[in-house]
């Protein structure tokens, strides 16, 4: 257990150092998110006030999902470049430590994309509607991120040896995350339109997000070890 924790710490430190040394790796998805939000703002034009919450939440979460997909798909690139998978034959790492270090890294990266996207979406797309910047919306977005990150790491690992990962990653990522996207959009809209509290949302949309998050996290943790085994 202690060994796993030490491995987790050093793997996370190493991953954070790699991200710090290559800021374009996490800055490019963020810039992409801002660009998509601008495009949405141009495409929507003048929106009737009653449609703002629906469009705002849908456009924001879609933007976040697109940007996260870019960030997630690159998460194992440094490990591939450093030939970590070949080194595993001589020095086996704990799959749990490896998965958790990648998971925490993508969660931090995801948060660094999610928070500015929410702020910019509120700035670009929200003209007089209820604000997107509230604690319940942040909670819903974070809970959605909790499940998405696990799935992101798992899919990224799956695609390592695939010959068509650029096409396959989004092809699998978007259908698999559709329930999370729908629940996040509907939950946020329910809060913005009817002022539903987190307790109320817990019995439907937020509950669905929590359940899918737990399922995706547990599955990813269990399956990760199988995926990184050498041939």
């Amino acid at each position: 257990m202690k060994r796993t924790f030490i491995q987790f710490q050093s793997l996370l430190q190493h991953s954070l150092m790699v991200e710090k040394a290559n800021p374009e790796r996490w800055l490019s998805p963020l810039l992409f998110a801002i660009t998509v939000l601008l495009l949405f703002a141009f495409a929507f034009g003048q929106v009737e006030p009653q449609f703002i919450p629906q469009l705002l939440t849908a456009a924001t979460y879609l933007t976040v999902f697109f940007s996260l997909q870019i960030a997630f798909s690159r998460i194992l690139e440094p490990d591939t470049q450093d030939r970590v998978f070949e080194q595993l034959r001589s020095y086996p790492l704990s799959p749990i430590a490896w998965f958790l270090s990648k998971y925490v890294l993508v969660f931090l990266l995801g948060t660094s994309i999610l928070l500015p996207t929410l702020i910019f979406a509120n700035l670009f797309l929200n003209e007089g509607g209820p604000s997107l910047l509230s604690v319940p919306i942040f909670v819903i977005a974070w809970v959605a991120l909790f499940g998405l990150c696990a799935l992101g790491v798992l899919l990224s690992t799956m695609m390592l040896r695939s010959q068509a990962k650029q096409i396959l990653y989004p092809l699998l990522y978007f259908p698999l995350t559709a329930p999370v996207l729908i629940a996040a959009v509907e939950g946020s809209r329910a809060h913005m339109v009817s002022g539903a509290s987190l307790q109320n949302l817990m019995s439907n949309w937020l509950g669905l997000l929590v359940i899918s998050g737990i399922i995706y996290f547990t599955l990813s943790l269990l399956l990760f070890g199988e995926l990184i085994k050498p041939e």
Binding site: L154, M158, L171, E226, L227, E231
Partner: peptide, 26 residues
């Protein structure tokens, strides 16, 4: 598509199996 995009072997079987389990959860 994913199954076809990987070279035959135990690695493909394991990864495809993991994906199959996730699909069934849906």
């Amino acid at each position: 598509i994913f199954y076809s995009s990987m070279a035959p072997g135990s690695q493909r079987d394991r990864v495809a199996a993991a994906l199959g389990i996730i699909i069934a959860i849906n």
